[in-house]
Amino acid sequence: MREIYIVEFPSNLGLKEPHPGKEPGVKRLPDWFQRHNLHKILDPENTLRLDPPKYNNTKDSETQILNANSLIEYAREQAYLVNNLLTRNKFPFILGGDCSILLGSAIALKQKGNYALFYLDGHTDFMDISLSETGGVGGMAASIVTGNGHEKLTNILNLSPYIKEENLWCVGNREYDDEYENEIRNSSATYISLKDLREKGISNCTTAFLSEVENKNLDGFWLHIDVDVLNDTIMPCVDSRTPDGLTYDEFNELTSYLFQSKKLCGLEITILDPDLDTTGKYTKDFVDNITHTFNLSQKNQF
């Protein structure tokens, strides 16, 4: 078993202000998880932290993206840290932050080889800037890391695409809107909505993904988990709430298959906002579920 390193990327650079003058609270996610014992239960070899540049809610004039220059600076620093861990055969267990933290991880993966991305999210995050009302990279992360969009963000360190589009699996979306979904339907990525996931079966979908990783002889895969993939009744403390979502039984089944694979080289968790979970009830439930599934899967790794 590889040594686990908890890595904290407490960034909110990819989100708009929830109210004028107020920063998104998701930057407190790592500290909130630690308060609710995730670090203690996982018992990592070490915990590393990289704080982001200052949030300013300003759109870049060249790209119309929020905090673009800060995101690029941060992604470079993140990539250096993640690359170092992967080179030493450590397992990065990353705590965001919003979904824009994917940029740094994806750059590191490109530097190491050819990887797949399993993007488990209640939204596709595969959106062109022209469809974005906010300019936040959090809603475009999967698209940007596969080379779509302004090269200022898609081609950092001249590494575009960080993840090949055909190696992206976007799973769990439940924002059923043709204009929104057509962005990924018209790509070469694999798109499995929540409806499709339930119809095809969790086991069948994860088996197909893991088989593809093997058949393509990829170096491994990365797991992105946005907590808003969970049912809104059990995970309401997110920035973009949508009815329905995975139950914990479904979520634990799906992640257990992925956690058990030796091809999984790291993961990241994003979007839970402590400001929206003042009692910690939803955070505690999430920590209990994911740590139990992860630790059990590591013992049963195949």
Rank of each mutant, 00 (worst) to 15 (best):
I234R: 15
V26A: 13
K263V: 01
F91D: 07
N84L: 01
L246W: 04
F93P: 11
E73K: 06
K262D: 15
N217F: 06
Y162W: 00
R185V: 04
Q298G: 04
L272M: 08
Q111K: 14
F294C: 02
L157Y: 00
H39Y: 04
I101R: 00
N155C: 00
L81R: 03
H19W: 12
Y80T: 07
N46A: 13
T242I: 10
S130N: 04
F209R: 09
E212G: 03
I101K: 01
E62K: 13
N67Q: 03
L272R: 02
M127H: 13
R2G: 06
S160R: 03
T233F: 11
N158D: 08
G14M: 03
I6M: 09
L267H: 12
R88D: 13
I234H: 14
L29C: 00
S187W: 05
I163V: 12
R198H: 06
R88K: 14
T242E: 14
I107L: 08
A79S: 13
L71Q: 11
F91K: 10
K200P: 02
D288Q: 15
T206D: 09
E268R: 03
C99W: 07
L272H: 10
D244N: 14
H292F: 14
K263N: 15
Y80K: 10
I271Q: 15
Y115E: 12
D273I: 04
D125I: 03
N215A: 12
P53E: 01
R185N: 15
Q64W: 07
S188M: 12
N12E: 06
D178P: 04
S105Q: 14
I4D: 09
T255F: 09
E45A: 12
I184K: 04
K200E: 09
V137I: 05
N89A: 10
L95A: 00
I94Q: 11
L117C: 12
D128V: 01
E73W: 01
G21A: 02
I65V: 04
K152N: 08
A208L: 14
W169Q: 10
S211F: 03
D244F: 13
D244M: 10
N252S: 15
A108T: 07
F118V: 13
R35S: 11
G201M: 07
D196E: 06
N289T: 10
L197C: 00
T206E: 05
G96R: 00
I94F: 13
